[in-house]
Design a protein around this nucleic acid. Structure first.
Lengths: 357, 357
DNA sequence: CGTAGCCTTGATGAGAGTCAATAGAAGTGG
DNA sequence: CCACTTCTATTGACTCTCATCAAGGCTACG
């Protein structure tokens, strides 16, 4: 129920208005002079204010002037009530920021119409503007031409950002594959994540102010959009849905890493290698039909085999390269995969998936 | 620069108004009848519309009626210009939703004042409401009484949420310690994170719609605020700064996990045990002075030793309990720590920090 | 045709997990 | 308050996975 504050010194008029408003299902708060009106406006926080102009103590102009300065009441629609019909008075009130102006004797219909309209207007204003949201943002990234962000082609082994960099962009992968690696003092490397078409890269780095603690390197020739940090921040603050989307992405990143943490801690290398094979396969070579994104027309699934250096596999598994090679040889001997150079083909995905150890 | 659309059929009046507005540094678009006015309003998207009432083709009421229904123009302030001063006409216009009403002959000062005021009003409305933001949100969580969220006391071993749950709350730890664990099919457990006073727990779980893949368990008696999911979502959409804050938290979570992934993959148990000791010490027992949060008056640093079961240490390190115990015995033999039951005291933090293997 | 960069296989040993038995600590109930 | 149970910590013995070092093969490319 909406609350309306009526500020009017003449009791009769005030109660008459109150009665009508109450009949129309509004909650009404009455003030008999300007000073009291301001106090009530502040304490009650009405949804709309009806205010007489000519009053003792503090007149209507004064009330509006005061309330317009208070951020808590500045947005409340304010309607003047008065007998004055001279144009210059009307101007006076409107130029102070009143939203409407009812002249006495007040017609009931006019009163209710004016009140209802102003309440509706406020409601309308408070609804978030229908801005281009998440969907448009994502679509824009796929525009072949007219994409609002600069798009670059990267070739194998190029670095998007390295540890220690202060990143200036968020990267959106239109096509290609990117690995995120983290290196320690003894030059040990793990691949912390893989990104493919449709993924964003570099978000955690952009959000913390400290320099990157990981680097991103292109695995296969890629086409990547750069979204400047400033632009990203604007998007995030102005579009709640885009913020929510990125938050979900981060949340899922956290989960994926937890998963890997658990596996790394307790599963033998053999199992981890198989998981890595399936991970890469699912990520890059076998998207479910409804998720296939082929912005440039190529069907990623058509790739007959996976190509990743043994070193990369090792970094993904978290084991030495020799060990990974041995496991791969075993799997080949068991007829589950085919190896030819750096190309690996999964021959029996079912068996790999069911593999217990 | 603001754009103003002037809809007026009389060329002389229109150009006069245009001239004045241009002098006042507005961009002006002119329409000579209502139909054209509507078209221009839609294509140009002006910041304010001045519109005559009496016009051929489509009169001012009609223009307002149409534009008020179009979500793209409904928010644009609309000012009527007319010679009509009869109150009922004024009502007519205002009840359609006009924001002001200037009577001809138009006084330049009034025109500029009215235009400026309405533009200012829109700007004011578009500014996000000065709601309590991030700082207030965080403060509210620490209110001993009057905390807007229900606060519960949890005792050791209580579960906040378990794997498979669909979480309904975000948890804020006012005091105490919580561990996040992840379990696999063979009942292996890793602690993926530790949370203490001032941390939020359960964010990733709330953001993805799939059930939890980890669980959270209280380590030491804790006092925890529950923030309902719905409330959180409201906060996130309405307060960009709170959203940004949580995003940063998630980003830092991702980084921490990457860090652990690397260490788990390549560092020997001994090193990992030492890291875990220092991690827990830094997290729970030696906050830098400016970060000590003692909402309930207790100084966490005063704890003389760390208490965590050997099993927990093992899960944190990602190694078997026996192995961890052996490493701890070694460290004791080397004089770096003191063991008495489940209590561990760090005797030589410097040496532990510098330890290479 | 040579060379650099991968990939592969072998031998070896240290690190870390498992199982099992014992020693303390911390509750529990009479 | 003490005996009893139950959990938790510790130590030992054994096994096995996996990293390391080393050497040889394969492939691609100039």
């Amino acid at each position: 129920m909406k609350t309306i504050l009526v500020i009017e010194d003449k009791k009769e008029v005030r109660e008459n208005i109150t009665e009508i408003l109450k009949l129309a299902q509004y909650r009404v708060v009455q003030a008999s002079d300007g000073r009291q009106g301001v106090a009530l406006a502040r304490s009650v926080g009405p949804d709309l204010i009806l205010c007489d102009i000519m009053m003792p103590e503090l007149d209507g102009y004064g009330v509006l002037h005061i309330l317009a300065k208070d951020p808590n009441t500045a947005r409340t629609p304010f309607i003047f009530l008065t007998a004055k019909v001279a144009p210059e008075h009307l101007r006076n009130g409107m130029n102070l920021g009143a939203d409407d102006y009812l002249t006495k004797p007040i017609d009931n219909i006019d009163l209710l119409a004016a009140v209802e309209l102003r309440l509706k207007k406020v409601e309308q204003m408070n609804q978030p503007v229908e801005q281009p949201g998440l969907a448009d943002f994502l679509n824009a990234l796929h525009q072949v031409d007219g994409c609002p962000y600069s798009t670059l082609r990267y070739s194998k082994k190029q670095i998007l950002y390295a540890e220690g960099d202060t990143p200036a962009n968020l990267y959106y992968i239109r096509s290609g594959q990117v690995k995120h690696v983290k290196t320690d003092a003894s030059a040990n490397v793990v691949i912390t994540a893989l990104s493919g078409a449709g993924d964003f890269v570099g978000l955690p780095g952009l959000l913390s102010d400290v320099p990157c603690t990981e680097s991103a390197e292109v695995l296969h020739n890629a086409e990547i959009c750069l979204i400047p940090q400033a632009e990203l921040l604007t998007l995030l603050t102005s579009h709640a849905d885009i913020g929510a989307y990125f938050m979900r992405l981060l949340a899922s990143d956290v989960r994926q890493r937890d998963e890997r943490l658990l596996k790394l801690a307790y599963q033998p290398v053999r199992k981890r290698v198989v998981e890595a094979l399936l991970l890469v396969y699912r990520k890059f070579y076998s998207l479910p039909d409804d998720l296939v994104i082929t912005p440039l027309g190529q069907d990623v699934r058509s790739a007959p085999f996976m190509t990743l250096s043994r070193e990369n596999w090792a970094q993904l598994v978290g084991a030495s390269m020799e060990t990974v090679i041995r496991v791969l040889s075993d799997l080949r001997a068991e007829g589950m995969i085919k190896l030819s150079g750096s190309q690996i083909t999964l021959l029996d995905i079912d068996r790999l998936t069911r593999l217990k150890h």
